[in-house]
């Protein structure tokens, strides 16, 4: 009853917490040309766990900003303008905070739950795996 597959359909969060589930969802998103949203989601989680005293952390924040937010990437398109401005200002002032990407991650997660996650559960990639 609590097979991995049962967990995958429970929520996006449980799908992404499973190695095979995350891998398969990534394959699906690559095909749909929106894999950046998933990489951004994982980058936000990784960033939150970083040590704020480590100089590497500011560089990672800048790298996330440059790669996903200050571009025409699908992530930037799905974020609210105010969310992008908030992150840009933090980066400019070098004010790094573990929660600085939380709002952006929530917006991306909501949009993944609304569309690609639902599509994934009816996709041939998923059905073949099942």
């Amino acid at each position: 009853p609590d097979s991995p597959l049962a967990r995958w359909t429970k929520s996006l969060h449980s799908l992404l917490g499973d190695q095979d589930g995350a891998h398969l969802f990534r394959t699906f998103l690559e095909r749909e040309k929106c894999v950046d949203t998933l990489d951004f989601w994982f980058a936000c989680n990784g960033f939150r766990q970083m040590d704020l005293k480590d100089t590497k952390t500011l560089r990672v924040a800048k790298a996330i900003y440059k790669r996903y937010i200050d571009t025409s990437s699908i992530v930037a398109k799905q974020l609210k303008p105010a969310t992008k401005t908030f992150i840009r200002d933090n980066i400019k002032k070098q004010q790094i905070d573990s929660a600085m990407f939380d709002q952006a991650q929530t917006e991306i997660q909501t949009s993944m739950e609304e569309s690609p996650y639902q599509m994934f559960l009816t996709s041939d990639i998923y059905l073949e795996y099942v």
């Binding site: 499973d18 190695q19 995350a22 990489d39 980058a43 936000c44 790298a63 996330i64």
Partner: peptide, 20 residues
């Protein structure tokens, strides 16, 4: 010194689920 891409990749990988 690590490149920006390496740092980003490392950050993403650190958050990926590990095999149980």
């Amino acid at each position: 010194i690590d490149s920006e891409d390496d740092l980003l990749q490392e950050c993403i990988s650190s958050a990926m689920p590990k095999k149980k």
